[in-house]
Simulated scan of single mutants.
Amino acid sequence: MEILKSPKEAVNFRNNLKGSVGFVPTMGALHEGHLSLIKKAREENDNVIVSIFVNPTQFLPGEDFNKYPRRLEADFEICKRAGVDAVFTPNPENMYTDDEILIKAPKIKGYILEGFFRPGHFDGVLQVVNKLFNIIRPTRAYFGKKDAQQLYLIKQMVKNFFFNIEIVEGETVREKDGLALSSRNIYLSDEERKRALSISKALKRAAKLSTKTDDIETIKKEMLDILEVDELQYIAFVDRDFNYIQKIQPGNTIVLIAAYVGTTRLIDNIYI
């Protein structure tokens, strides 16, 4: 397995590859959710490249950029065992300049939900993914449905910028008790982790109720009764194109939650 530390090294490596390339962009601290994407990429492509880069431009002031978990050696071992051909680990200095040409998230769907509570976050996400796509030039790129709004916007960017890349969606991977896997789960105390389970429980309740009623307010009320979080930022009901909906649309609805449990911000969703 090759370790590629600069964009130039990655471009040179990519230029020598034959066949299809599956790409899994990550910020490291790899868990089973990432591994499921890597395995999918391995099954569907001749070559697999994983990037590990804690991207500074998608963190807002006061967020956890400096304490975001970094376990590079452990991540390398995970990738090696999963049959990854190369890991791209750039640093901010070789990915960004002082006076960048910027990419902006769309004015509406880039500034609702996550974009409202983290203004500018998606600008940074799209900026770095654009760079990574140009460096790696993948045949297919793999993203998890847990970050549903991010996934939608990346698919929009691929369409708007005419990238010849297939975006492959991976299902949210959960612990046995239902907690969605996230690198930030390590911030949770034992007591907080128990309360964090109320997020997935509320989503499961929404899915079950949606088979009996399409009334969003009824479903939302029952979800609120289940949640045990310290600060609820939103419960949202949208269609697959991230338009707010008035009633459940079976097969075309995403229910999303963002909340703080202790000082840890968690997001989760369910497709119904």
Rank of each mutant, 00 (worst) to 15 (best):
L126Y: 02
K146R: 14
N252A: 12
T57C: 10
V128K: 03
N94D: 11
I38D: 00
D85Y: 02
L4R: 03
I235S: 00
L35I: 13
R240G: 05
L266F: 05
L102K: 03
D85C: 11
P25A: 14
K145I: 14
E114K: 04
I270W: 01
Y68H: 00
Y152G: 07
K146F: 06
V229A: 05
Y152M: 14
S189D: 09
F242M: 08
I135G: 01
K18H: 06
D190E: 15
N45R: 09
T26D: 06
A236N: 03
R70P: 02
E169W: 02
I267A: 10
E77H: 05
K201F: 10
S210D: 06
P69L: 13
E114A: 13
D177K: 06
I52S: 06
T213E: 09
E228K: 09
I199F: 06
F76L: 15
I257G: 03
V21L: 09
Y111I: 10
F133V: 13
V229C: 05
Q149I: 14
I112F: 00
M27I: 05
K247V: 06
G251K: 08
G120Q: 08
M157F: 01
H34I: 13
F76R: 07
K145T: 15
D64A: 12
D215C: 12
G178A: 12
S6M: 11
P61I: 14
A236I: 09
I135Y: 02
S182W: 01
N160P: 05
F65R: 05
K104A: 12
K104T: 12
I254K: 07
Y244F: 07
K145G: 15
D241K: 13
A202H: 03
S210I: 09
A207D: 06
R184D: 07
L224H: 01
P119L: 15
E43W: 01
R137Q: 15
F242N: 00
G33F: 02
L35S: 05
A236R: 02
D46L: 07
E231V: 06
D214C: 09
C79E: 05
G170L: 11
V87I: 14
H31S: 03
P25Q: 10
Y187N: 11
P90T: 05
L224C: 04
Q127V: 11
N160R: 10
L266R: 10
G110V: 13
I235F: 00
F59G: 06
V238Q: 03
L266M: 13
Y152W: 05
F163W: 02
K204H: 10
D177Q: 08
D268S: 14
N160W: 01
L232V: 09
P250A: 09
E191M: 12
Q127A: 15
F53S: 08
K194F: 10
G110W: 01
R140E: 15
K104P: 04
A206I: 08
C79T: 06
R118G: 14
G124R: 11
N16H: 06
D190Y: 04
V168A: 04
E43S: 14
D214Y: 00
A148R: 07
D230L: 08
